[in-house]
Design a protein around this nucleic acid. Structure first.
Length: 259
DNA sequence: ATGTCCTACACCGTAGGA
């Protein structure tokens, strides 16, 4: 089973690119982030026509996450628990049915810039809520995949020029520690488990020729419970759609699982 | 670290987020 995560930077602006990629890459499950549209405006019919069940958690203009699945979706949770009054649509979790059921979340962690503002504390608070929820999920002793745009550069070698990121929320010690805390709870970084090479990126800024210069960062991740990690067979960053016309600034991360 | 892109709202430009 091929499982992908992809921040599409507006699903309506990106529809053609998304449809094309679904056709050529043929993933079974896709976690999308940054839909930038309300649920009623999600291009549901077009995605269903490609053979996917669709669950969305959207909002106008900002954020928005979805899970597409060729297998039946048995349960859906919208919103990360513990955020009373938090209106930002950044988390959706589904139980995927079939002979070997598993649980998967599509998450869009806050960017956190600029430093020294409530945006950065919101990022760390959101991470704290994710830790608490992830702990609960581990108690189920199920295969769990937490996939998405974490907005964290884990290592210096996950970017081209660490010094350029020194004052960025994506590379702060607190952000990187929060990512490690998630892993230390008992999750495996899928990319690090099977690859781990330096300078393999999932995001390149639209500006300043970042893509042609390969000035990217690795910020899209899959965190796997032990029961999911033991079924992971391959992991790959698919750079292809980043080079297409009107691309997202992110490219998909794809894991092959024995589900 | 800025050679951009996307959305909304309102008026065919600008602000705000990334």
């Amino acid at each position: 089973m091929r499982i992908a995560t992809w921040n599409v930077n507006s699903v309506t602006a990106r529809l053609g690119v998304v449809e094309q990629w679904l056709k050529v890459a043929a993933p079974d499950i896709v976690c999308l982030q940054e839909l930038k549209c309300e649920d009623a405006k999600f291009p549901r019919q077009q995605i269903e026509d490609l053979g996917y069940n669709v669950q969305t958690h959207g909002q106008k203009t900002y954020n928005g996450v979805a899970i597409l699945s060729k297998l039946p979706i048995d349960e859906t949770l919208r919103g990360l628990p513990g955020g009373e009054g938090d209106e930002q649509a950044r988390y959706i979790e589904c139980v995927i049915g079939g002979p070997k059921p598993f649980r998967i979340a599509s998450l869009y962690l806050p960017n956190g810039n600029p430093l020294g503002t409530e945006k950065f504390t919101y990022k760390l608070d959101w991470f704290g809520r994710l830790h608490a929820h992830a702990k609960e999920l581990l108690k189920l002793e199920e295969p769990v995949i937490l996939a998405g745009d974490y907005n964290v550069i884990p290592r210096p070698e996950d970017c081209q020029t660490p010094a350029a990121w020194a004052n960025d929320a994506l590379y702060q010690p607190e952000s990187r520690a929060a990512w490690r805390t998630l892993l230390n709870l008992g999750f495996t970084d899928a990319y690090m488990a099977l690859d781990g090479r330096p300078h393999q990126y999932t995001f390149w800024d639209y500006q300043a020729g970042a893509w042609p210069k390969n000035n990217g960062i690795r910020i899209d991740h899959m965190a796997l419970s032990a029961q999911a990690a033991e079924r992971l067979r391959t992991v790959a960053i698919d750079r292809e759609p980043r080079g297409w016309e009107k691309p997202s600034d992110h490219t998909p991360l794809v894991g092959e699982f024995d589900f």
